[in-house]
Nucleic acid binder design. Structure first.
Lengths: 230, 230
DNA sequence: TTTTGATTTATGTAGGACATATATACAAGT
DNA sequence: ACTTGTATATATGTCCTACATAAATCAAAA
C-alpha cells in the first residue's frame, strides 16, 4: 500500500487535549442546561470532580471562556455566565501579519460588500447633523497636499463616520477592526488610484440624492478597488 | 452625590488576572518580535521564568492563544505560531441565547447590509453552472406547501448558494454563522411576511438582468425585513 | 545503511498548598 | 432601625512538585 493511501486512510490522530474536551463539554453543558446570562456556574472543584479531571484542566478551559467574555468570575461568589462581546474575540485575531493572503483578500471583499450595502440603512437613519459633520470631514481633505498620512487618516475618518451614521454599533466596530486589513491590502498596490467620485461628491448625494444614486456614487468611489478584483 | 454618579465616576476596579496580563504580553511579544507563522516559541518554562510567573499562568494564557489558533503545540518540539482561523473564535461566541438583544439586532442588520452589497462581486463571479443550481433550489420551493421547516431550509439553501457563488470562502462561512441569529430574530416575528420578489424572480434577474436590477430585486425580496427596521 | 533502542526534553495532567477576596452571619455602636 | 465592624467559610488565583507521554536526537546493533 502506498504511503499516500496510508495517510488518507488513517490520518493524524486527533490530539485534542483535555482542556479542549472540557471546553467543548462546558459549552454544551451551558447550552443544554439553558444557562442564561447571570446564572451561576458550579465551582471549579465541582466541575473538575464531575468531569474527572484535574482542576488545572478545568481552569484552562474556563480561562478560554473567560477570555471570550462568556463567563465572569468573582472570588468566593463563583462564576456567572455573561453576554460575550462578540467582536472581542475577533479583534484578537485580526492581524494582517498572521492572516493568510487568501483570507486577507476575502476580508477585503467583505469590506467592499458592506460598503456597497450600507445605503439602505444609511438612508433610514441619516440625520442632518451627521451629514454636516461628514461634510466637514470631506472638505478638510487634502487642502494643500498634506501627504500620504493625512490622506489615509482622512479616508478612515470619512468612511468611519458613514458607518457611525448607520447607528449600528456592531457594524461600526466591525469596520474599525477591518481597517488595518484594508490598509494593508491597499498598501500592496503599486500606484494608489482614486475614484472619480470624491468624498465631497458623496456628501452632496447624501444631501439631495437617492439611495440608488448614493450606491452608484459609492461604487464609482471604490472603483479602483473593484477593478482589482478577479 | 447620587449613587449613579458614583458608579459612573469610579467604576469597578479592573481585576485583571495574571493570565490576562500574560496573554496580552505574549501577544505583544509575538508582534514586536515579528514572529511569522511557523516560527518556534520559547518553552513554557522559559516564558514563565522570563515573565516571573508560574508555569500555570503561562499555560492558561497559551491555552487561550491555542484556542484562537494562533499557536500550535507539539510535544517536545515546542510551540509554533500559526495562522488562526479568524472565524473560529467568532463561531464560539455566536449563540443567539447569550447575545444581548441590541447586538442581535445589529447583526441582523449586518446580514441585510451584506445581502444588499453582494451584487457587485456576484456579477463578477457568477457562472452558468451555479445559476442553474440556484434555479433548481428556487424551483424546489414549496411545491405543495410543505410547511415551515421546508420553507426555512429552502431559504437557507438559496441564500447560502448566493454567498457561495461569490467565491469568497470567508464571506460564505460568515453568513453561515449568522444563520442562527437571522433565524432567531425572524422567529420573533408574529406574522412571517414574504417579499414580492421570489427566489425564482431573483434567478431570472441573475440570468438576464443587470446588477442594479438584481439589487432592487433583492431589496424587494427583503422588504419585509427592512420594513421592520427603525 | 537501515533499523532498533536509549536518552533527552517540552508538553499534558494531577494534586497539594496557601493567599486573597468576599458573601454571610453576627455583634456592636450610633 | 440602620450603619459599621468582626469572624468565618468558601471559591478563585497563584505557585510548586511530580510524573506520564510524545518526539527529536543520538547511539548501538543488524
Amino acid at each position: 500500500m502506498a504511503k499516500t493511501d496510508l495517510i488518507k486512510d488513517l490520518g493524524p490522530i486527533s490530539q485534542r487535549t483535555m482542556a479542549d474536551v472540557v471546553e467543548k463539554e462546558l459549552r454544551e453543558y451551558l447550552k443544554k442546561k439553558l444557562f442564561k446570562p447571570g446564572d451561576a456556574l458550579p465551582s471549579e472543584l465541582e466541575l473538575a470532580d464531575a468531569l474527572g479531571v484535574s482542576r488545572n484542566v478545568v481552569r484552562e478551559a474556563l480561562s478560554r471562556l473567560r477570555m471570550l467574555g462568556m463567563i465572569e468570575t468573582k472570588k468566593r461568589r463563583g462564576m456567572i455566565l455573561s453576554t460575550p462581546d462578540i467582536l472581542g474575540s475577533f479583534e484578537r485575531v485580526l492581524d494582517p501579519l498572521i492572516i493568510d493572503d487568501g483570507t486577507l483578500q476575502d476580508i477585503f471583499e467583505l469590506r467592499l460588500t458592506l460598503e456597497m450595502g450600507l445605503a439602505d440603512i444609511l438612508y433610514l437613519r441619516k440625520k442632518k447633523k451627521d451629514i454636516a459633520e461628514l461634510e466637514a470631514i470631506a472638505k478638510s481633505q487634502d487642502p494643500g497636499g498634506k501627504g500620504q498620512a493625512f490622506r489615509i487618516n482622512n479616508e478612515i475618518a470619512f468612511h468611519g463616520k458613514i458607518y457611525q451614521m448607520t447607528g449600528n454599533e456592531t457594524l461600526m466596530r466591525f469596520q474599525n477592526m477591518l481597517l488595518p486589513i484594508f490598509g494593508y491590502v491597499i498598501s500592496l498596490e503599486k500606484v494608489p488610484q482614486i475614484g472619480k467620485v470624491s468624498h465631497v461628491d458623496l456628501v452632496n448625494i447624501l444631501k439631495d440624492g437617492t439611495k440608488e444614486e448614493f450606491r452608484q456614487g459609492m461604487h464609482e468611489h471604490l472603483k479602483p478597488h473593484f477593478n482589482r478584483l478577479k
